[in-house]
């Protein structure tokens, strides 16, 4: 029962692989037997569809559009959120108001924002902007709590040493908060992918989101599932990359 690293690892790896395999088999069986109706195809059919060159071309184009929008949105949202968090740390009087604004902007439902952005920013920019909003909120929430995460004794030392706000921010708050900021980025990455997909629902020309809605309306079940799996895959990839980054940061800054 004890947690000897080497001993516990082997069976748990086996169990993990077993778990993923069981999930895949379950999805296949439900589809094969038609337990969930015609909307749930066998997984092998979906893979068979993806193997076709025409499908790969279609999915590839959609993937490029969505990944680009998600990445651009992630960067834009992350940078803006960090700047706003830094502003609220340097000018504490603005803090409560900026936090309320972020909460309100976040609470504005995406369905309200989508058409609004389409009319103001255009079809091409909308997925990026929705992704930026989704990612930016996650980063902002993480960053504001991150900049407050230095402990009281450390702050007292900085106060007594006569450190100004900028110096405290640079030498204490930012490095102390970096692990939490990276945590926020880890949440923001899948949020950016989701934001890009939802942004595409409001009338973008191409992308995974467009493919999802058109396949749903045209009853192209295999294509629908393939698009969904692609969306899940890029989301998972973004998450895994940032979890790796988080590991590196935690080793260095804790």
């Amino acid at each position: 029962m004890s947690r000897v690293p080497g001993a516990a690892l082997a069976p748990s790896r086996g169990l993990a692989a077993g778990g993923v395999l069981a999930l895949l088999v379950l999805v296949e069986i439900v589809g094969r037997l038609g337990l969930a109706g015609p909307g749930w195809p066998p997984l092998t059919d979906v893979f068979g569809y993806v193997a076709k060159p025409s499908a790969q071309q279609l999915l590839g184009r959609a993937l490029t559009a969505t990944a680009t929008a998600a990445l651009a949105g992630f960067l834009l949202g992350g940078v803006v959120a960090l700047l706003v968090a830094v502003l609220s740390a340097l000018v504490p009087a603005t803090g409560p108001g900026l936090e309320r604004l972020a909460a309100v902007v976040h609470a504005v439902p995406l369905i309200a924002l989508g058409p609004l952005l389409i009319t103001t920013a255009g079809r091409e920019a909308t997925p990026t902007l929705v992704a930026a909003l989704a990612a930016g909120f996650a980063v902002f929430v993480a960053a504001t709590s991150a900049l407050g995460s230095a402990n009281d004794a450390q702050r007292d030392v900085f106060t007594v040493l006569g450190a100004g706000r900028a110096s405290t921010l640079l030498r204490l708050q930012l490095p102390a908060g970096l692990p939490l900021i990276v945590d926020g980025l880890t949440l923001a990455a899948p949020a950016a992918v989701l934001g890009a997909v939802i942004g595409e629902w409001f009338g973008a020309r191409r992308g995974i989101g467009v493919l999802l809605v058109s396949s749903m309306q045209n009853v192209q079940t295999d294509q629908l599932w393939a698009a969904a799996l692609t969306a899940a895959a890029i989301s998972l990839l973004a998450y895994v990359l940032l979890v790796a980054l988080r590991g590196a940061v935690n080793r260095r800054f804790q």
Binding site: P11, S12, G14, L15, A16, A17, G18, G19, V20, A22, L23, G39, P190, V193, L194, V197, I198, I208, G209, L212, V213, S215, M216, L224, W225, A228, A231, A232, S235, L236, A238, Y239, V240
Partner: peptide, 22 residues
């Protein structure tokens, strides 16, 4: 627990709301 942990990890990063069409 051993089987569900990786599944949960995968599911956690799946954009569930994007799966509405499915």
């Amino acid at each position: 627990s051993g089987m569900m942990t990786p599944v949960a990890l995968v599911m956690r990063s799946v954009p569930v709301v994007a799966m509405i069409p499915v």
